[in-house]
Simulated scan of single mutants.
Amino acid sequence: MKRLLVTGGAGFIGSNFVHYWIDNYPEDTVIVLDALTYAGNIENLNPVKDNPSFKFYQGDICDSVLVEALLKEHQIDTLVHFAAESHVDRSISGPDAFIQTNIIGTHSLLKAAKKIWLDEGVNKETHRFHHVSTDEVYGTLEPEDPAFCESTPYAPNSPYAASKAASDHLVRAYHHTYGLRVTTSNCSNNYGPYHFPEKLIPLVVTNILRDLPLPIYGDGKQIRDWLYVEDHARGIDLVIKKGRLGDCYNIGGVNEWANIDIVHFICELMNNLFIENPKFADKYPQAISAIAGKSQELITYVQDRVGHDRRYAINPKKSSSELGYMPLESFETGIRKTLRWYLKNDSWWGAVMDGSYRKWIEKQYSSSRQG
């Protein structure tokens, strides 16, 4: 029976991991620590809030006193570290928050874990610090380049990617220097329920439902490997169970798509959903283009992001051969599940899109729109 501390557990990937873990290991204890900044949402944890195995604390991962107290009070043996600033656009306009959370915050957690687990000997031989990272630390790929593997040299190209690369190195250093029992996973682009609507897929879906432009950076031919979020949670589970201490594991979807192709695919699916289910037109009367079967006419090309990486791709061969990992969802099945979730949960994304974030995102795209 494990006792987990999940940092950033009210965010997109973190909350999905919490749902997955409680569903699959109901005998375990799951403690969530989240600062509830703009991308953290306590509503993401509603499905588990009444579960006796779950407890939530609002707090900062830089608060070492709080983290140490949680590790001791709850006899934590497994720390799963999701908490991070993760939006590349925001890292370009305001990198300081990324340095603070992703580097200083990760180091603060490592110090707390070392103090409680190693210096004080609580769960000294059984603890695990699992660090969740990204494929963006590897940089960019040309169209014919092989996919990233765990030995690919780091070459981060944005402040976000650089901050995550730095945190990866700190986790490695605490294993090799102090003997902290760590593992790291680097994932490709996630999608699924509770995805914050600044990211491509939820932004496209929610904008179609409000008949707003679908902003596409540059020519839209940037390629990403897409991973359904529950497949990611399963991959982390396998790393925690079977991963070699001190090692890194790539978790990917084996599913490369160009951004513009994703947008066209979502438009086609949304058009069909509105044609097949007239009730959606009643629920979303603003979705004029989707109701008419013309969502693709909302596509709007905008100025490309500064330093935009052209292609990411993950080779999960090591995770497959050592851990038995393979994604269960294809993009087609995963995206259909995602669309159904957003159509059903308009109260969730409607609340998220209100207020300061909505004003920020509209300012970003209106200032760079090319017609």
Rank of each mutant, 00 (worst) to 15 (best):
K2F: 05
A10W: 00
G11D: 06
F17W: 10
Y20L: 12
D23F: 02
D23W: 00
I31D: 07
L36Q: 04
T37D: 05
G40C: 03
L45G: 03
L70W: 05
E85C: 12
A97N: 07
A112Q: 09
I116A: 07
H130M: 02
E142R: 14
P143M: 06
P143G: 00
P143H: 06
E144F: 12
Y154F: 15
P156N: 08
P159C: 11
Y160P: 08
K164N: 05
H169A: 15
R181F: 08
V182Y: 01
T183R: 02
T183Y: 03
N186I: 07
C187S: 14
N190T: 15
P197R: 03
K199A: 13
V205W: 04
T206M: 07
L214Y: 10
D231F: 00
D231E: 03
N250S: 13
G253I: 09
V254K: 14
N255S: 15
A258L: 07
H264C: 08
I275Y: 14
E276V: 01
N277P: 01
P278M: 03
F280K: 09
K283R: 15
A287R: 09
A290H: 06
A292E: 14
T300D: 09
R305H: 03
A313V: 03
I314Q: 09
K317G: 01
S319Q: 00
S320A: 07
G324E: 02
E332A: 11
R336N: 07
T338G: 03
W341Y: 10
R358E: 12
W360F: 14
W360E: 13
S368D: 01
R369A: 13
G371E: 12
